[in-house]
Simulated scan of single mutants.
Amino acid sequence: MREGQDPGPCAAPDDEVVHLPVAELVIEGSPRASGEDQEHVRSLAAVEQQLPPIIVHRATMRVIDGAHRVRAARLSEKKHIRACYFDGSAEDAFVLAVQANVRHGLPLSLKDRISAAERILVTHPQWSDRMISTAAGISARTAAEIRRRSAEPEPSGVRIGQDGRARPVDAARRRSLATALLTENPDLSLRQVAQVVGVSPETVRAVRNRLLYGRRPPPVRSPKRQRQEVGWAPEEQDAAVRRLASDPAVRQTDAGRVLLRVLRTQAMTAEEWQKIVDNVPLHCAPLVEQAARESARMWAEVAARVARNSSLAE
């Protein structure tokens, strides 16, 4: 695996750099719906320094990463280009192409990243939402929503995380089964219960410890309720802002008025947010994405601090 690549279930390209004939390379199946940016191709063709090697799927000679560099090489009438081979499947080659275009070069648009996530979910349904979100450059919440809309069946009742470990999708239900087994048969070993229920012995140990201290496992929630708790609907957000505005402790202080002003600017419907997303100029997309991610990070920090202050006051 080359430096800078994240570990994951997919294989990595070879470290060996070879020189491949430009004429034999295939440029198709890119995650970029609009194709290559010709201005970017011309700018690469004018670069005098040696560009990084492209990545090529050995079985098909399809360019996985570096289509712009290949177009630039053809524009400059170069016969060969530096490359590294990838020997994985066509499905893994697409994932690698998405990861490469998310990390560097001309970034993929949000629309392209969501389309890529939808395709990865079909070819890699066993991957966790966070694994898919990391590969496609979207949030885990968006990946979960894509999975919910697709109604793709769980291949084996487990999902593979970024650490390569398989975890059951219905973990809460399995812990409840382990609780029932240990309650009825306290002499069963951890390994026996784990084998029957389909969890790790360490999970069974945690369940047994809860029973020893008189604590029951958390109730199993339905998927519908879990989805409802992922985030507020816009009307709930609007109602929360109105309640804050009616509270004198907020409305009659400088800091409270600033808070209300900021919250009101962000209390928009999903359609209004989508209209903003659809009208971001392509050349501004990286800056808008960076600003949005930083804003999200700051709000997450604010939420954590407010929750911490609230818990200290109880």
Rank of each mutant, 00 (worst) to 15 (best):
A72W: 12
R113I: 04
S311M: 08
P186H: 08
R293M: 06
V63E: 02
A144Q: 14
R308D: 04
M61E: 14
P248W: 15
I54R: 02
A206Q: 14
P248S: 14
I276E: 03
G214A: 02
L212V: 13
P248H: 13
H40W: 14
P107R: 14
V207T: 12
L190R: 10
R173N: 02
T134G: 10
K78V: 09
V63Q: 00
L244S: 08
A296E: 08
V262L: 10
L121E: 13
L260H: 12
V306E: 01
S295F: 15
L44E: 05
E24V: 15
T183W: 01
P234K: 10
P223V: 09
A83R: 06
S34W: 11
R32W: 04
M131K: 12
A136L: 06
T203R: 11
E301F: 14
R305W: 05
S222P: 07
R308M: 06
Y213S: 12
V277L: 07
V280L: 11
A233P: 01
T183F: 01
R119I: 04
D112K: 03
T253F: 06
L177S: 02
P153Q: 13
P125G: 10
R69W: 04
A245H: 06
R225V: 15
H19A: 08
M268C: 06
R210P: 02
D112T: 01
A300W: 04
P31G: 02
E236V: 01
V199H: 09
V230N: 09
L312I: 07
D163N: 11
V197Q: 04
L244T: 08
R210I: 03
P7W: 15
A178T: 11
I120W: 06
R264E: 05
A285K: 15
L110Y: 10
N185T: 12
R297Y: 09
V250C: 12
A90V: 06
S200W: 02
V288T: 13
D112E: 07
P125Q: 09
H104K: 09
A296M: 08
R215L: 09
M1R: 13
S176L: 08
A33N: 07
E272K: 00
L190H: 10
S133E: 05
V17T: 05
V250R: 03
G4P: 09
C84H: 10
R215Y: 03
D238V: 15
E91C: 02
Q195P: 01
R113Y: 02
R141A: 12
C84S: 12
Q290I: 03
Q226E: 14
A245N: 08
T142C: 01
R2V: 13
N209S: 15
S150C: 03
